[in-house]
Design a binder for these strands. Structure first.
Length: 326
DNA sequence: CATCAGGGCCCTG
DNA sequence: CAGGGCCCTGAT
């Protein structure tokens, strides 16, 4: 069992994302399943982070506005961070949270768009991001596969409880991820966590990282097609998972190579207002996104999608409820 | 109770 | 390149 760690506050850094920056819609995605390494309330996000072998607790506090963004980042840890590591950590966080995304051309292209314009105005400054490492995203992608949300939550929690570590900081108790090197498990041991056939995927992906078969920072600098093929080479990682990763981790805002059946139904209703039970062909959907949203297909759909799920957070959206399996 | 499909992917033919 | 199988679970 993991040992709970009490972290002490180390220091606070000021962060300034590019404007416009919308704190809450960037730091909280109502469509994401709740995972025990993070929590959010308006203006604040708590997040654990595995970095340079350290287990960190991060607290982001909004101290700015959309047009003059400013965040205070509290770093909690057991040991003081070396001074040199601090700057590198800020660089890493800027990357992961997509703080340097230039939204101006996107805003300009779609501000007058009949459907997208008003949504863009409502969520101006929102951006996709992923707070964790590529490895950590892959684990999440694996537990998402072929499961209801409820079950994905249970699987990730079981993994955290067995291989992660519970960190206490700023009044929160959140799990921190394990590293590939730390997960010395057999397929059978993983199966005990009731993750089923995904045990093999978790194991093989973990081994690939531990063996140095791929490296996140190297991959960031690689071409889109190289990133895609490297990810697809991982056992248990297919087109659906890769699509999310290319957008959320590698920030490809025009990603739209794959649409899975459940998304196809929701897109059909959202963009064509047709019965989700007789959805628009995937090829037709992609062609339409091409014609209307390129070269920002992912980002445009992200805005519409998040807008929908924020609505749902406030009040159930009748047609949507049966299309998402909780 | 039994059956089935799921917020995919692998493997086979 | 189409289709069956896979861990489990909740829905029917």
């Amino acid at each position: 069992m993991p040992i709970a760690q009490q972290l002490a506050h180390q220091h606070t850094v000021e962060l300034t994302p590019t404007a416009p920056f919308l704190f809450d819609a960037t730091f909280h995605k109502p469509d994401h399943f709740p995972s025990a390494d993070t929590t959010w309330e308006q203006g604040v996000r708590w997040q654990t982070m595995r970095w340079l072998g350290l287990r960190l607790g991060l607290v982001f506090r909004n101290q700015g506005t959309v047009d003059a963004p400013c965040l205070a980042l509290e770093v909690w840890a057991q040991e003081p961070l070396p001074q040199a590591g601090r700057a590198a950590m800020v660089t890493e966080i800027r990357y992961r949270y997509n703080f340097d995304l230039d939204l101006a051309p996107f805003q300009e292209q779609f501000s007058q768009h009949p459907a997208l314009g008003p949504i863009l105005l409502r969520w101006r400054g929102m951006r996709p991001m992923h707070p964790g490492s590529l490895y950590e995203y892959l684990i999440i992608a694996i537990v998402l596969q072929n499961a209801t949300v409820r079950r994905s939550v249970a699987m990730l929690h079981a993994l955290f409880a067995r291989y992660g570590e519970l960190l206490h900081f700023d009044g929160q108790a959140l799990y921190c991820f394990w590293t590939p090197e730390e997960l010395a498990a057999t397929e059978g041991q993983l199966r005990e966590l009731k993750i089923g056939y995904r045990a093999r995927s978790v194991l093989r992906v973990t081994q690939a990282f531990a063996a140095g078969q791929l490296d996140e920072h190297t991959l960031r600098a690689a071409s889109y097609s190289e990133q895609r093929s490297t990810l697809l080479d991982l056992y248990g990682i297919g087109p659906a998972s890769v699509g999310y990763i290319l957008a959320d981790v590698f920030h490809h805002m025009d990603e739209m190579a794959h649409i899975s059946p459940w998304e196809q139904r929701i897109y059909s209703k959202l963009f064509f207002d047709v019965d989700p039970d007789t959805p628009v062909d995937v090829a037709e959907l992609i062609a339409w996104f091409d014609a209307n949203f390129a070269p920002w297909r992912w980002l445009a759909v992200h805005y519409v999608w998040e807008d929908l799920f924020w609505q749902r957070k406030n009040a159930p959206v009748d047609w949507l409820e049966r299309l998402i399996r909780l």
